[in-house]
Amino acid sequence: MTDLFFRAILAENLALSFFLGMCTFLAVSRKVGTATGLGIAVVAVQMVTVPLNNLVHAFLLDAGAWGWIGLAEVDLRFLRLITFIGIIAATVQILEMVLDRFFPALFSALGIYLPLLTVNCAILGGSLFMADRGYGFGESVVYAAGGGIGWALAVMVLAAIRERLVYADVPPALRGVGMAFVVTGLMSMGFSVFAGMAAP
Protein backbone atom coordinates (compact mmCIF):
# COMPACT_ATOMS: atom_id res chain seq x y z
CA MET A 1 0.00 0.00 0.00
CA THR A 2 2.79 2.44 0.94
CA ASP A 3 4.58 1.29 -2.18
CA LEU A 4 1.50 2.08 -4.31
CA PHE A 5 1.07 5.46 -2.61
CA PHE A 6 4.61 6.66 -3.27
CA ARG A 7 4.71 5.18 -6.74
CA ALA A 8 1.56 7.16 -7.62
CA ILE A 9 3.11 10.38 -6.29
CA LEU A 10 6.62 10.10 -7.72
CA ALA A 11 7.52 7.46 -10.29
CA GLU A 12 4.09 7.25 -11.96
CA ASN A 13 3.20 10.90 -11.55
CA LEU A 14 -0.01 11.52 -13.50
CA ALA A 15 1.19 14.83 -14.94
CA LEU A 16 4.87 14.17 -15.54
CA SER A 17 4.97 10.58 -16.74
CA PHE A 18 1.46 10.07 -18.17
CA PHE A 19 0.86 13.62 -19.46
CA LEU A 20 -2.59 13.82 -17.88
CA GLY A 21 -4.40 17.09 -17.19
CA MET A 22 -1.90 19.06 -19.26
CA CYS A 23 -4.32 21.76 -20.47
CA THR A 24 -5.12 22.95 -16.95
CA PHE A 25 -1.57 22.15 -15.85
CA LEU A 26 -0.08 24.72 -18.23
CA ALA A 27 -2.90 27.26 -18.06
CA VAL A 28 -3.10 27.52 -14.25
CA SER A 29 0.59 27.44 -13.33
CA ARG A 30 1.52 31.10 -13.51
CA LYS A 31 1.06 31.82 -9.77
CA VAL A 32 1.80 29.51 -6.83
CA GLY A 33 -1.40 30.60 -5.03
CA THR A 34 -3.80 29.59 -7.81
CA ALA A 35 -1.78 26.43 -8.52
CA THR A 36 -2.17 25.40 -4.86
CA GLY A 37 -5.95 25.96 -5.02
CA LEU A 38 -6.23 23.88 -8.16
CA GLY A 39 -4.01 21.16 -6.68
CA ILE A 40 -6.20 20.86 -3.58
CA ALA A 41 -9.32 20.70 -5.77
CA VAL A 42 -7.77 17.88 -7.81
CA VAL A 43 -6.91 15.88 -4.67
CA ALA A 44 -10.46 16.37 -3.31
CA VAL A 45 -12.24 15.38 -6.55
CA GLN A 46 -9.87 12.46 -7.15
CA MET A 47 -10.44 11.11 -3.60
CA VAL A 48 -14.22 11.14 -4.13
CA THR A 49 -14.55 9.98 -7.74
CA VAL A 50 -11.98 7.14 -7.94
CA PRO A 51 -13.36 5.13 -4.96
CA LEU A 52 -16.93 5.85 -6.14
CA ASN A 53 -16.13 4.66 -9.65
CA ASN A 54 -14.39 1.65 -8.11
CA LEU A 55 -17.61 0.63 -6.32
CA VAL A 56 -19.72 1.20 -9.43
CA HIS A 57 -17.25 -0.78 -11.53
CA ALA A 58 -17.06 -3.69 -9.08
CA PHE A 59 -20.81 -4.00 -8.38
CA LEU A 60 -22.48 -2.90 -11.62
CA LEU A 61 -20.15 -3.05 -14.61
CA ASP A 62 -17.53 -5.77 -14.14
CA ALA A 63 -17.90 -9.18 -15.77
CA GLY A 64 -20.10 -11.30 -13.49
CA ALA A 65 -21.12 -8.38 -11.28
CA TRP A 66 -24.78 -9.31 -11.76
CA GLY A 67 -24.17 -12.94 -10.74
CA TRP A 68 -26.16 -12.57 -7.51
CA ILE A 69 -29.46 -12.33 -9.40
CA GLY A 70 -28.51 -15.07 -11.82
CA LEU A 71 -27.18 -12.92 -14.68
CA ALA A 72 -23.57 -14.11 -14.44
CA GLU A 73 -22.91 -13.79 -18.17
CA VAL A 74 -23.71 -10.04 -18.26
CA ASP A 75 -20.56 -7.98 -18.94
CA LEU A 76 -21.13 -4.23 -19.01
CA ARG A 77 -17.47 -3.18 -19.10
CA PHE A 78 -17.98 -1.43 -22.46
CA LEU A 79 -20.12 1.14 -20.59
CA ARG A 80 -17.15 2.07 -18.40
CA LEU A 81 -16.18 5.31 -20.11
CA ILE A 82 -19.64 6.86 -20.33
CA THR A 83 -20.44 5.82 -16.73
CA PHE A 84 -17.21 7.23 -15.32
CA ILE A 85 -17.54 10.58 -17.09
CA GLY A 86 -21.16 10.85 -15.98
CA ILE A 87 -20.26 10.11 -12.36
CA ILE A 88 -17.38 12.61 -12.46
CA ALA A 89 -19.58 15.37 -13.89
CA ALA A 90 -22.29 14.68 -11.30
CA THR A 91 -19.81 14.49 -8.40
CA VAL A 92 -18.20 17.78 -9.33
CA GLN A 93 -21.61 19.44 -9.54
CA ILE A 94 -22.72 18.03 -6.15
CA LEU A 95 -19.38 18.86 -4.52
CA GLU A 96 -19.81 22.42 -5.75
CA MET A 97 -23.29 22.71 -4.23
CA VAL A 98 -22.23 21.12 -0.90
CA LEU A 99 -19.22 23.42 -0.58
CA ASP A 100 -21.34 26.44 -1.45
CA ARG A 101 -23.94 25.54 1.21
CA PHE A 102 -21.73 24.39 4.11
CA PHE A 103 -18.20 25.73 3.52
CA PRO A 104 -18.56 29.12 1.81
CA ALA A 105 -14.94 30.12 2.53
CA LEU A 106 -13.59 26.98 0.89
CA PHE A 107 -16.05 27.42 -1.99
CA SER A 108 -14.85 30.92 -2.77
CA ALA A 109 -11.25 29.63 -2.79
CA LEU A 110 -11.82 26.50 -4.91
CA GLY A 111 -15.10 27.34 -6.67
CA ILE A 112 -13.63 28.56 -9.93
CA TYR A 113 -11.46 25.45 -10.39
CA LEU A 114 -14.15 22.84 -9.83
CA PRO A 115 -15.96 23.13 -13.21
CA LEU A 116 -12.58 22.82 -14.98
CA LEU A 117 -12.07 19.43 -13.39
CA THR A 118 -14.99 17.74 -15.19
CA VAL A 119 -12.99 17.72 -18.40
CA ASN A 120 -9.60 17.27 -16.75
CA CYS A 121 -8.05 14.06 -18.02
CA ALA A 122 -6.11 13.52 -14.78
CA ILE A 123 -9.43 12.84 -13.04
CA LEU A 124 -10.84 10.56 -15.74
CA GLY A 125 -7.40 8.98 -16.25
CA GLY A 126 -7.20 8.11 -12.54
CA SER A 127 -10.49 6.23 -12.75
CA LEU A 128 -9.58 4.47 -16.00
CA PHE A 129 -6.17 3.35 -14.69
CA MET A 130 -7.89 2.08 -11.52
CA ALA A 131 -10.27 -0.04 -13.60
CA ASP A 132 -7.57 -1.20 -16.04
CA ARG A 133 -5.22 -2.34 -13.30
CA GLY A 134 -8.01 -3.98 -11.28
CA TYR A 135 -7.44 -2.20 -7.96
CA GLY A 136 -9.62 -3.21 -4.99
CA PHE A 137 -11.52 -0.62 -2.94
CA GLY A 138 -8.69 0.01 -0.42
CA GLU A 139 -6.10 0.27 -3.17
CA SER A 140 -8.30 2.68 -5.12
CA VAL A 141 -8.48 5.07 -2.13
CA VAL A 142 -4.68 4.97 -1.71
CA TYR A 143 -4.12 5.35 -5.47
CA ALA A 144 -6.52 8.32 -5.65
CA ALA A 145 -4.73 10.07 -2.78
CA GLY A 146 -1.29 9.41 -4.27
CA GLY A 147 -2.29 10.38 -7.81
CA GLY A 148 -3.99 13.59 -6.67
CA ILE A 149 -1.12 14.63 -4.39
CA GLY A 150 1.41 13.87 -7.13
CA TRP A 151 -0.45 16.04 -9.64
CA ALA A 152 -0.81 18.86 -7.08
CA LEU A 153 2.90 18.65 -6.24
CA ALA A 154 3.87 18.88 -9.93
CA VAL A 155 1.64 21.89 -10.66
CA MET A 156 2.85 23.76 -7.55
CA VAL A 157 6.53 23.15 -8.37
CA LEU A 158 6.02 24.28 -11.97
CA ALA A 159 4.23 27.45 -10.79
CA ALA A 160 7.09 28.24 -8.40
CA ILE A 161 9.64 27.85 -11.20
CA ARG A 162 7.57 29.94 -13.62
CA GLU A 163 7.29 32.76 -11.06
CA ARG A 164 11.10 32.87 -11.03
CA LEU A 165 11.34 32.61 -14.82
CA VAL A 166 9.61 35.99 -15.12
CA TYR A 167 12.99 37.55 -14.37
CA ALA A 168 14.91 35.41 -16.87
CA ASP A 169 15.85 36.70 -20.29
CA VAL A 170 14.15 34.03 -22.39
CA PRO A 171 14.26 34.33 -26.21
CA PRO A 172 10.98 36.05 -27.24
CA ALA A 173 9.61 33.14 -29.29
CA LEU A 174 10.20 30.73 -26.42
CA ARG A 175 8.54 32.96 -23.84
CA GLY A 176 5.55 31.60 -21.91
CA VAL A 177 4.30 28.28 -23.20
CA GLY A 178 7.47 27.13 -24.96
CA MET A 179 9.54 27.64 -21.83
CA ALA A 180 6.84 25.99 -19.67
CA PHE A 181 7.11 22.87 -21.84
CA VAL A 182 10.89 22.75 -21.59
CA VAL A 183 10.80 23.26 -17.80
CA THR A 184 8.15 20.53 -17.46
CA GLY A 185 10.39 18.26 -19.52
CA LEU A 186 13.29 18.84 -17.14
CA MET A 187 11.00 18.24 -14.13
CA SER A 188 9.76 15.04 -15.72
CA MET A 189 13.37 13.95 -16.17
CA GLY A 190 14.01 14.63 -12.48
CA PHE A 191 10.94 12.65 -11.42
CA SER A 192 11.86 9.69 -13.64
CA VAL A 193 14.81 9.09 -11.27
CA PHE A 194 12.29 7.81 -8.71
CA ALA A 195 11.27 4.98 -11.06
CA GLY A 196 13.76 2.54 -9.55
CA MET A 197 12.83 3.38 -5.97
CA ALA A 198 11.06 0.74 -3.85
CA ALA A 199 9.50 1.22 -0.41
CA PRO A 200 11.91 0.10 2.35
Binding site: L16, S17, F18, F19, L174, V177, G178, M179, A180, F181, V182, T184, G185, L186, S188, M189, S192
Partner: peptide, 12 residues
Protein backbone atom coordinates in the same frame (compact mmCIF):
# COMPACT_ATOMS: atom_id res chain seq x y z
CA UNK B 1 8.39 10.91 -21.31
CA UNK B 2 10.59 14.01 -20.74
CA UNK B 3 11.60 14.25 -24.40
CA UNK B 4 7.95 14.69 -25.45
CA UNK B 5 7.70 17.90 -23.44
CA UNK B 6 11.01 19.23 -24.73
CA UNK B 7 10.34 18.39 -28.41
CA UNK B 8 6.90 20.05 -28.24
CA UNK B 9 8.44 23.08 -26.49
CA UNK B 10 11.05 23.41 -29.24
CA UNK B 11 8.32 23.03 -31.88
CA UNK B 12 6.40 25.92 -30.29
Amino acid sequence: APSAFIVLGLLV
